[in-house]
Design a protein around this nucleic acid. Structure first.
Lengths: 219, 219
DNA sequence: TATATTATTTAGATTTGTCTAAAAATAATT
DNA sequence: AATTATTTTTAGACAAATCTAAATAATATA
């Protein structure tokens, strides 16, 4: 099963969209891929013929078993390359996405597995997302949105939701990144902001928007 | 100037072919790119419009200054990736070409320059070919075809001509690789084969075909 | 030099992935 | 339930890169 770059991008987009919602709609896909609904319909038919997804006209789409397998291969490649870029080439973790988007399409199973070894079989990428192993298995860490954490909890940042440049700029300024540990102190109902305490000392404020973009695990 | 993968492959092929010969012919290019002469003509027109080459119908083609600059960027990327694959990922130097062929098309100047640093600014790739620096300059080592070396010379293998799987299999069997040092002992006019002496001890025979594929420097 | 051979280009078709505009199906509203 | 709005699909067109078959130019040969 050899996929084109365009096909891989559709598979990947469906994979990411169907995590939350049930069936993925044509419009959702068009928006996510910066293309038009008509183009999406065409491609969905093509991928359906290749048995990569279950698609009923007007009913949206889900990946088939085969499609999911392909998606995990692409996600694995993307996240391993991101890890490489940050860990070995000293890229900032907020500037690797675009490059990894290209590297993920290089097709050589041997390359990916050797890269994995070289990097020491990392389990999470620089954004905190789990990296599938060569069998397609990946850690399903119990991660929570910061907005849902009750005051007084000790947490560690493990991933960020939307990867916008603006978000990353703010995180950098507040000196918060993947792996940062802090305690939630209290919540303010007026604006849904949260006060946290870093290193048991300085208290800083997290806005509702920022809290919604941060995923943490309890420790 | 943003080139497609196909355009880059044409530019690269022309670059390699025009080193020896003067103008590169349509048929040569078609053979080298495993495509048909008619397709080549089409692409030559396209690249001419982009001012990447000087092309007169029926007269063959040469790269323009701009084309040469582009070619060196691609060659730089290809050879750096080959070096990475062999040096960091433990690929055999006879199995990296195909993968590098894909990696070379990833477009990010920052990526290439950071990779170059990470690798320690290597001057030659695993096949002994010089790696252009970020300004497009590369070492022009004085290398000779083994077939032209006079008996009694002490030489070091610095690159191989055609990178076929068959050639590499043979080299591996004879235990010859980039950096191998040996002395040419004598030539046999009957079949143009050459006797060489490895490590001042065991003498082995190099066929005309093999000698023509080996480039060495005098030491 | 005239003719045959080879190399190259042109003309027209094909595939992939995209688009716009219009039609059809589904969902939302009055 | 009927109408309106939204979503999705169909139909037809387009650009990129390729192909085959035919025409033309250049080269080699008799």
């Amino acid at each position: 099963m050899n996929l084109t770059v365009a096909e891989e991008n559709y598979i990947k987009a469906i994979f990411h969209l169907q995590l939350d919602e049930g069936n993925v709609s044509t419009n959702q896909l068009a928006a996510s891929l910066h293309t038009k609904p008509a183009s999406v319909t065409d491609m969905l038919k093509k991928l359906t013929n290749k048995n990569l997804l279950n698609y009923e006209p007007y009913q949206g789409v889900r990946l088939s078993k085969d499609g999911k397998r392909q998606a995990l291969i692409i996600v694995r490649k993307h996240r391993l390359w991101e890890y490489f870029l940050v860990d070995k080439l000293q890229f900032g973790w907020d500037e690797v996405h675009e490059v990894a988007e290209e590297l993920e399409h290089v097709r050589s199973k041997k390359l990916v597995d050797k890269l994995d070894s070289f990097l020491g079989h990392p389990k999470f990428d620089p954004h905190g997302d789990p990296i599938p192993d060569s069998h397609g298995n990946m850690a399903t860490i119990r991660q929570f949105n910061l907005i849902d954490i009750k005051p007084g909890s000790l947490v560690e940042v493990c991933s960020v939701g939307i990867q916008s440049a603006e978000l990353l700029e703010l995180l950098r300024h507040k000196n918060i990144g993947i792996g940062t540990v802090f305690q939630t102190v209290r919540k303010f109902d007026f604006d849904n902001s949260i006060e946290i305490s870093l290193n048991n000392s300085r208290s800083i404020n997290i806005s509702q928007q920022l809290a919604q973009a941060l995923f943490v695990k309890l420790i």
